[in-house]
Amino acid sequence: MSFTPAEWSLIASATVAILMVGSLHVRVNLFGYCVLTVLISLATMFSAIDHHETSMFYLAGAIALLKGISIPLFLYWIIGKLKLGSDSGAVLSAPLAMHLNIGLTIMSYFLVSEFPVPLGELRTWVGAMAAISMVLTGIVLMLIRRLAISQIIGFLVLENGIYIFALTQTRGMPLIIEMGVVLDVLVGVMIAGLLMFRIQSSFEHIDVSKLTDLRD
């Protein structure tokens, strides 16, 4: 099988996402997120070259700069400040979850073959598979982690999956909207980060699974 460079990057990023599930270390997870985002930015750049679209170069730059570097740096800073080590994990043990995730990726292959879009010129099944696999990985990450910061990382992975879907399944989302989405995510992470400090200082932990005071 011969893949385009963009497809190779996407396959690599989906693999990194799966590997992230296997580690409970917060720093390792964050590094994984950083790597996969940079890979997605590369994929954007490669498809920009393929389709001769200059606007996508800007987008690739914005993703690398904002999502790939700024957000991880901000989260690293928080990890350092709050002295976080590793997540204790919930529901499933990490290796088991990783294997489950591999199963989900295979499932997403079959989902893609059911997908209503004709897979024509762009041969987009790789992209679609990477996208759906990454969305599922994000959801798994959010479900099996306890710490607030891991939840944020899970959400970011989920959002990256959606972005890959937009990149591979559509031609040219309007740049201004993509930028707006990136900006919203950035602000959201900032707010969540600030809240995390508050959670740490009021509860003396950031284990969000223990936040269960409010109920009917």
């Binding site: 959606i162 959201g188 707010i191 809240l195 009021s202 969000v208 005071d213 409010l214």
Partner: peptide, 27 residues
């Protein structure tokens, strides 16, 4: 307070994930 913190966190996370699905739908 602790309770407002919990409510805010839940609001932010639940709504953001929900809205992420809406983004998927929009695409």
């Amino acid at each position: 307070t602790k309770h407002t913190l919990e409510a805010t966190w839940k609001y932010l996370v639940v709504c953001s994930v929900g809205i992420a699905f809406a983004l998927f739908g929009t695409i």
